[in-house]
Simulated scan of single mutants.
Amino acid sequence: MEEQEKKGFVVRDRRKIVLDEADTEEKAREAPETGTGPERTEASRAEDRERVEPGAARSQDRGKNARPYPQVTFSTFVFSLSSSALVHLGEVPDPSTQKVEKDLPLAKQIIDTLAMLQEKTKGNLDKDEEQLLQTVLYDLRLRFVKQSGS
Rank of each mutant, 00 (worst) to 15 (best):
P68W: 00
I111R: 03
L140D: 01
D128E: 13
D48N: 12
K120Y: 10
D13Q: 04
R58H: 12
E53L: 11
A46C: 11
R143Q: 10
A115P: 00
M116I: 09
V136G: 00
A43L: 15
D103A: 08
L106M: 14
T76C: 07
G90I: 07
R49T: 06
V145W: 08
T36W: 04
P105Y: 02
V87D: 02
L19I: 14
A31L: 03
P54D: 06
T73V: 06
L142P: 10
G55E: 01
V92N: 00
D128R: 06
L132E: 03
D20T: 01
S80M: 11
N65M: 11
D20A: 08
M1I: 07
S82C: 03
F9T: 11
N124P: 02
E101H: 07
E30G: 06
I110V: 08
V18Q: 14
T76E: 10
N65R: 12
L89N: 01
P68D: 05
E21D: 13
S80W: 05
H88I: 00
R58A: 15
L86Y: 10
Q134D: 14
E53V: 08
G8I: 06
Q60K: 09
H88Q: 08
S96E: 14
T41A: 07
S82R: 00
D23R: 03
A107W: 00
A22L: 11
A85T: 02
Q131N: 15
L81K: 12
A56Q: 12
L19W: 13
L117Y: 02
K120V: 12
G8V: 03
I110P: 00
P32R: 00
S59I: 07
K120R: 14
Q60I: 06
R29Q: 02
E101T: 15
A107F: 02
V92Y: 04
S96D: 12
E53C: 05
L106K: 03
T135D: 14
E26V: 07
R62K: 10
I110D: 00
G149S: 09
L132D: 07
D94L: 05
V52I: 09
G123Y: 01
Q134S: 12
E39R: 09
L142T: 10
S96I: 09
V136C: 02
E91A: 12
S82W: 01
R62T: 11
L89P: 01
L133H: 01
R45Y: 14
S84L: 14
Q118S: 14
A28R: 15
K64D: 08
T76L: 11
V78F: 00
L81E: 09
D61T: 13
F79A: 04
V145D: 08
L140S: 02
K16V: 11
E30C: 04
V136K: 04
Y138Q: 15
K6H: 10
L81I: 05
V78M: 03
G63F: 05
A56R: 11
L133R: 02
P68S: 09
P54E: 09
V18F: 15
F79Y: 14
R14V: 07
T113C: 13
T113Y: 05
Q109K: 13
A46F: 12
S83A: 15
G123N: 05
G37Y: 06
F74G: 00
T41S: 13
T73H: 06
R40P: 01
L133K: 03
R49C: 09
I110C: 00
R40K: 10
E42A: 15
E130Y: 01
P93Q: 03
N124V: 10
E50Q: 08
E119K: 06
Q134R: 12
D94T: 08
